[in-house]
């Protein structure tokens, strides 16, 4: 490798510590880090953080006070995520103890199958912003080491005000959409549908569930509900479909994430 490659690596590491880098730059960076394993992605994070603190110390105008309302939100988030994690641990322990007893196992399996069927029907038309959705989203962000995150890009002028992002973890098979500025829909006439593009596994995009928008001026969080197991989600899209959604869409794309479609032979 040429010394200019090492310089390029250092330049990209500096950029990574100081600004948002593009997907192409990140790809190049990861390629070079494999060649120079003595470097890692966070090479300059410590020194740039210290330099930032040093400038911050000297800049009296930038010393803001955390708003009390935000402080309360942060403390409540922590309490609820902590309780949710503890709740999940307890449920898992309880379920394990039940399945250890064969006489209960078959009964639990049947009940779960019935329960899951009902919840899948319900989820098709769930209300956004279930109480725990924002916390579940934060939990997924904080605990996943394979998280992909993309902002939404509008493909139609009617949806130009739409803003938000999508996060997804292949390992957890979970993801969330956060969105605002979408036009309100009439659920009796149409519903928004999420699509997951997984080119290695499926020729067609996978149905990620339908949702309604009942307000345009606030962030709405929607869990992604894939109908099939996802191997490696490469992109996401939203269309407007008939109530209940469709198996294969023939509608125009409203939003995509990322902006450019991965190369594929898909019809969507």
């Amino acid at each position: 490798m040429r010394s200019s490659d090492k310089e390029l690596l250092l330049d990209l590491l500096v950029m990574q510590s100081t600004q948002a880098i593009s997907d192409e730059e990140n790809k190049e960076l990861q390629k070079l880090i494999k060649v120079y394993p003595e470097y890692n992605n966070y090479e300059f994070d410590e020194i740039t953080s210290l330099a930032h603190m040093s400038y911050h110390l000297d800049d009296n105008r930038s010393h803001e006070v955390l708003p009390n309302e935000l402080k309360s939100k942060i403390l409540n988030s922590h309490k609820q995520i902590d309780s949710l994690s503890l709740y999940k641990i307890k449920i898992n322990e309880f379920m394990r103890s039940l399945f250890d007893q064969p006489t209960y196992a078959w009964a639990i399996t049947v009940l779960l199958a019935i329960g899951i069927s009902f919840s899948m029907i319900e989820f098709k038309n769930y209300d956004s912003n279930f109480r725990y959705l924002p916390l579940e989203r934060v939990l997924l962000q904080s605990t996943s080491n394979d998280l992909v995150e993309y902002p939404w890009y509008s493909k139609q002028s009617d949806f130009a005000m739409a803003k938000g992002d999508i996060i997804w973890s292949n390992k957890s098979q979970k993801g969330f959409i956060k969105i605002s500025g979408m036009p309100v829909n009439d659920p009796l006439k149409n519903q928004y549908q999420i699509w997951i593009i997984d080119p290695l596994k499926y020729k067609q995009p996978v149905d990620g569930g339908v949702f309604n928008i009942n307000a345009t001026d606030q962030d709405i969080i929607i869990p992604i509900n894939p109908k099939l197991p996802i191997l490696n989600a490469k992109a996401f899209a939203i269309t407007l479909e008939q109530p209940g959604g469709v198996v294969v869409s023939s509608q125009e794309l409203i939003l995509t994430a990322p902006e450019l479609r991965p190369s594929s032979t898909f019809t969507l």
Partner: peptide, 9 residues
């Protein structure tokens, strides 16, 4: 900021 504090935790 909420994400940052959860990440630090």
């Amino acid at each position: 900021v909420q994400e940052v504090f959860i990440a630090i935790w």
